[in-house]
């Protein structure tokens, strides 16, 4: 199976976050990676238990790059990890 991770938006400021092994991170590379359907289901269940902190968790497919970093397969999700392509001074890409 393709690699999957869980993403959501943070309740307080709406920013994009990823489920890690022990919480949530704004960094996709910190995400907990699932390699099986069962693992994904378990991660999603954990994410949904955090409904008081996050909004709308769902799984996305990622590829691991040679340097170990994670890259979303869909362009929409890649945009979410960076920020608007037309305002590179905003979002995570600006940091």
């Amino acid at each position: 199976m393709a690699l999957e991770i869980i993403t959501a938006n943070r309740l307080g400021d709406g920013l994009v976050i990823f489920l890690t092994t022990d919480g949530w991170s704004a960094r996709i590379d910190a995400a907990a990676v699932s390699e099986t359907k069962d693992e994904t289901a378990a991660l999603l269940a954990r994410a949904e238990a955090d409904a008081g902190l996050v909004v709308g968790p769902y799984e996305i497919t990622v590829e691991r790059q040679a340097d170990g970093s994670l890259h979303p397969v869909k362009y929409r999700e890649a945009l979410r990890t960076r920020g608007p392509s037309v305002r590179t001074d905003l979002g995570y890409q600006a940091a």
Partner: peptide, 9 residues
């Protein structure tokens, strides 16, 4: 009027 969009509210 408060939506949740791709990057934020």
């Amino acid at each position: 009027g408060l939506y949740l969009q791709l990057h934020a509210y």
